[in-house]
Design a protein around this nucleic acid. Structure first.
Length: 284
DNA sequence: CCATTAACCTGACAGC
DNA sequence: TGCTGTCAGGTTAATG
């Protein structure tokens, strides 16, 4: 399970089933930090609180607690949420069921365990007064949600009109649009039929409209695919989510272009240290 | 302002 | 088998 927006959305839906309305009876914290140190007295501040609601902002998971604080989770590059009802009973017998990278476990009153697993530890956990959540340093500079109403052709055209960066880099910039990652930006540009190298200030309103349209299409399709694998919350495990079999260009360097009647091949180029995959024949 | 690079980490995989 | 090098879905900080 690797976290771009559709995957985070799917994880959120699983976590809602596992946590919303329930009480966090206890928390195990098995290391002092992920990307940054965990919030001070995290265990004490969370334990006993009820999960009032659970939402997503860009790639952040926001858990609103009855204590008027909100737990902010980010999965980084390799974070997963493992939800398991069986662990509790095994644990009661004294066996350790937790793996090397199971860093934090929330024990729900219902008996469900929710574990944050993250091998690379680029993930993050923070806790802030719900009232000030929008002003949190990780959230305050985020651009609009790509699936929200404020993300439209007029907004994006304005956001891009003075920039000299490439469209690939601009769409990955979380201040322009929040929540897009490397895979889906490659897929979006393939569908629009433009090169990842195109300089954004030269794009026509027509092209920007197409980009907005395909952002919506690609993300919605991926969320739908993820949702269909989410039969019940126990499915929020390592196999949930990623939809690689459907990629048109991502990770297909050297392979034939999948656009109808196109005889091109997928090539890879590096932009700002990230791989871009595209067809040089049908993406101009 | 913009663009690129390094950094944070571990694991998977290719090639020798 | 094991070593080495490369690469990875994200984001920030530093540098040019």
């Amino acid at each position: 399970m690797l976290p771009e927006l559709p995957e985070v959305e799917t994880v959120c839906r699983g976590m809602i089933l596992a946590m919303e309305g329930d009480i966090i009876s206890s928390v195990d914290i098995r290391r002092p930090n992920l990307r940054w140190p965990f919030p001070v007295k995290m265990k004490e501040r969370i334990s006993g609180a009820k999960v009032n609601s659970l939402t997503r902002r860009a790639k952040y998971i926001l858990i609103n607690l009855s204590s008027d604080e909100t737990l902010i989770l980010h999965l980084g590059m390799s974070g997963r949420i493992l939800i398991d009802e069986k662990k509790k009973s095994i644990l009661d017998k004294g066996d350790n069921v937790f793996g090397k990278h199971d860093h934090v476990t929330f024990y729900m009153k219902s008996g469900t365990t929710v574990t944050f697993n993250d091998p690379r530890r680029f993930g993050a956990i923070d806790l802030i007064e719900t009232e000030h959540c929008d002003k949190h340093w990780l959230l305050s500079k985020l651009g609009p949600e790509p699936l929200g109403n404020s993300m439209n052709a007029n907004y994006l055209f304005d956001a891009l009109r003075h920039k000299t960066t490439s469209i690939k880099v601009a769409l990955l910039d979380q201040k322009v649009v929040s929540g897009l990652g490397n895979i889906y930006v490659c897929e979006i540009l393939f569908r629009v039929g433009i090169s990842p190298r195109r300089i954004v200030k030269n794009l026509s309103m027509r092209t920007v409209s197409r980009i907005v349209e395909e952002i919506r299409n690609v993300l919605n399709e991926a969320i739908l695919a993820g949702g269909s694998t989410l039969r019940d919350h126990r499915q929020t495990n390592g196999d949930l989510g990623y939809f690689q079999h459907n990629f048109s260009v991502y990770n297909r360097e050297g392979d034939r272009c999948r656009k109808e009647k196109c005889s091109g091949f997928v090539i890879r180029l590096v932009q700002s240290g990230r791989s871009s995959f595209y067809c040089s024949k049908c993406q101009k």
